[in-house]
Each structure stands twice: as C-alpha cells, then as structure tokens.
C-alpha cells in the first residue's frame, strides 16, 4: 500500500507544480495592481489551445510553443492591461471583479465559438511514457510540466530580486505613492506585471497539453484552485504561492486516498483555506505586504 501513497505524493507534487505557476501569475498581478484576475484560467485555456493548434496545424512541439508563448502572451497581457484593466485600477473591487469575470465569460464564449465546445487532446508519441521511481510510475510529460513550472517560478523570483525592473515592481507592490514619488512609471509596471502574470499562466497551460485535454470550460477550475493557493500563501507573496500550490497538490492527491471517497478530496484543501482565513488572514507564509 505504501507504493500507492508514494504515487499519490509524487503525482500531487507534479500537479502542484503546475498550480504554482498558475498561482504565481495571479499573485503577482494582485500584488502589484491589487486586482484579482478572475479571467486567469481563461488565459490558461487560450495557452492550451495555442499549443494544441500549433501542434495539430503546424507540427510545432508543445515545448517549443512554451518558449514562443513567453513573448507572445507577455504582449497579450500587456495589451489587455492597457486597454481593459487600466481603467479599473484603483477603483472599487466590485467593478474590478465584474470586469475580470466578464472577461472570463467573454473568453469562454469566444473559445466555444472559435474552437467548438468539444473536448480535444494532443496525441503525442511520448504523451504517456513513464519511468519507475521506487515503485511509483512517473510520467515524463508531467515531470516536464513540473520542472518548467518550478524553473519559471525561480526565474521570476530572481528577476524580482535582482533586476531594476523587478525591484520597481516590488516597490509598486509595497507602496504605490512611494513608488510614484521616486519616479517609477506605475502604468508601465502594471503592464509588465500583467504581461508576466499572463505569460506564466499560459505557459502552465501549454506545459499541460501533452497530458491533459483542452476545452473552453477548462479554466474556472484552475482559477479557483489558484485563488485558494494565493490566499494560503498570502496575497502577493510569490514563495508563499509556490509552497501553497505544492501543499494543495499533495493534499488533493493524498486526500483522494485517505478520505472515504475521492469526491471529498477537496475537503482538506477548503478546510485549510477556511482555517487560514480565520486565524492567519495574511496567509500561511510571511507577513502582510512582504
């Protein structure tokens, strides 16, 4: 039976890695702009469709698509921020939620119109190849998704710590007026933050296409999970989001085994979520505003 738990632990960590990249994008956007992007999962879905059609129509490998997606989705995020999100920055949360929720519905409807409501999946030669690790089977594609996600999270962290732009972004997150006072171009920072957040979530989607299906309705599930993770890790806290994501991945996966029914596997996650909201509203990790 221990093999089963090892398997659950490993697969939980793998999917947790993907959750991390989704959540990091969400938390970065929140940290800098104070906006919760409810359309986050829809950018994941568009990333998936991009990789799907690049592979089906032009034979581009999804992993190459992931590289190409970085500048492309950064540009998309930059533009969406400039056109749609900018007018509501600093406005009431209700307006922001309505806007991003509306964007989410619009993108789902658009995907249904353009790509049909059908579920589709990529059929790759290496799609289901695995290797053995101490009695558990590890899928290469899931491992690749995990490594890509962790690598990008680390790169983002280094970018935020070591570069001038990164420091400026953190300054915005900490203190808007202060950042403005020292001459940081807030509008540009917002666009960068949104662009980076969208690129992260789109690449998370692309990294999943070798083993997951694509459909217009795939997004909301991930938005919800990412939201839980971001609250667990502390809003705006990037290492917290990564740790929270791995915890959620493992709790879901092992929970499916220990709970009387896998239907209850999310119970552990949401219990943790409620407890954190009650007793540590600043998140499991780090203090407010860090």
């Amino acid at each position: 039976m221990s093999d089963v738990y090892l398997q659950a632990l490993i697969s939980g960590l793998m999917i947790g890695g993907v959750y991390a990249l989704v959540a990091v994008g969400l938390t970065l956007i929140f940290g800098v702009m104070d906006i919760i992007n409810f359309a986050h999962g829809e950018f994941l879905m568009f990333g998936m469709y991009g990789a799907f059609f690049a592979s089906v129509l032009f034979g581009i490998d999804p992993y190459l698509s992931a590289v190409l997606a970085l500048p492309l989705f950064f540009a998309i995020g930059w533009t969406v921020q400039g056109v749609l999100i900018r007018p509501v920055v600093g406005k009431s949360h209700a307006i922001q939620i309505l806007l991003t929720l509306g964007l989410s519905l619009l993108m789902q409807a658009l995907a249904q119109f353009l790509f049909s409501a059908d579920f589709q999946s990529l059929k790759l030669d290496y799609g289901s190849a695995t290797f053995d690790l101490g009695g558990a089977r590890v899928s290469y594609t899931r491992l690749a998704a995990f490594l890509i996600a962790m690598g990008l999270c680390a790169a983002l962290w280094v970018f935020l710590q070591r570069t001038d732009t990164g420091r400026a972004l953190r300054a915005c997150a900490e203190e808007h007026e202060g950042a403005l006072a020292v001459g940081i171009d807030l509008r540009r920072m917002y666009k960068i933050a949104f662009g980076l957040g969208i690129a992260c979530v789109a690449i998370a989607g692309i990294a999943m296409t070798p083993f997951f299906y694509v459909a217009p309705v795939v997004g909301p599930k991930f938005t919800l999970v990412a939201f839980v993770i971001v609250v667990l890790g502390g809003l705006g806290n990037i290492p917290g989001a990564v740790a929270g994501a791995l915890i959620v991945g493992v709790v879901e996966s092992v929970g499916a085994l220990v709970m009387p029914s896998p239907s209850l596997k999310d119970l552990g996650v949401y219990l943790l979520f409620i407890l954190v909201l009650l007793f540590r509203p600043q998140g499991l990790f780090g203090a407010k505003g860090s």
Binding site: S11, I15, K221, P262, S263
Partner: peptide
Amino acid sequence: SYPKDTPDMTSTIAQ
C-alpha cells in the same frame, strides 16, 4: 466516486 472535471486522477488510479 470522483468530482467531475478533476485535473488529476493519478492517486485514484494507483489505488
């Protein structure tokens, strides 16, 4: 039983 649209079923299948 499992929740619809779940992103990962590995642990259930391992069981």
